[in-house]
Design a protein around this nucleic acid. Sequence first.
DNA 1: CTGACATCCTGACGGC
DNA 2: TGCCGTCAGGATGTCA
Length: 274
Amino acid sequence: MPELPEVETIANGVNERTRGQTVVSVWTSGKPQTFKTPPEEIGEVLMGARIERVHRVGKTIVCDVVRPDGQGAQFLVHLGMTGRLLVSTAETPVPPHTHLVLGLSGGKEVRFVDARRFGRLSIHRDTASSEGYGGPGREPLAISLEDFIALFRERKTPIKAALLNQTLLHGVGNIYADESLFRAGIRPTRKAGRLTRAELGRLREALIVVLRHAIELGGSSVSDYVDADGVRGFFQLEHTVYGRAGEDCKTCGTALKKTVVGGRTTVFCPVCQR
DNA sequence: CTGACATCCTGACGGC
DNA sequence: TGCCGTCAGGATGTCA
């Protein structure tokens, strides 16, 4: 389940391997759910375009391209649960569930592979905003303390659900929501609007530390996530609560509890998180 | 508007 | 060994 650190790792990998190259061929599976923008339109925009930069906004991989006519556009890749964006040689067998293949001028291919088809491909055109795609919410690694506190004011939903809400902060998913709440010592079921300024300050710090540390380790490898080379990250070795229900809390030794918050499996320490 | 919940989709895994 | 039920969850749509 790629979240911010995994998406950043993948985007950086694809950027290093494709930047400056031109798209010389486009193939799509045409599976309707995968294409938020119709596949024909994606093909028209990308064919002959030069890849300027590949980066991350929230959980979305953003490919900035320039078309032969000089027009800029952005190709957006959301990996969903099981999506992978691979840079492969043309000789590498095309995996099952491949939905898009971009042939590049350097001879390699960019492939989007997604078994469960929760991923989405789309085109974002530069219209009014010269800054391009901004994502649905605020960047957790860039938001100020005051703005962070304001996001949760008056909110009656559990803090865990609020962290998963991409229109508030984007990029946080189930793993890093649980991990940052543990680090901040906050129970996931607490109402967001009831947290004190001090608690929200701790939560923001915890999120930043956890996300940065995970990025350094190349993300968490859980189920289908692999980076642009097909290499797994190592942050899962450092998970303190995610996937550890029933095991001992690494801080106090108490058995970690499992519950459901915001429709998602949630693991927390009943002693360390209040 | 806000929050709760179902839905999509397939592979992995556990139990029998 | 193999089958089947259950679970995983990001984003979206529906409903109260």
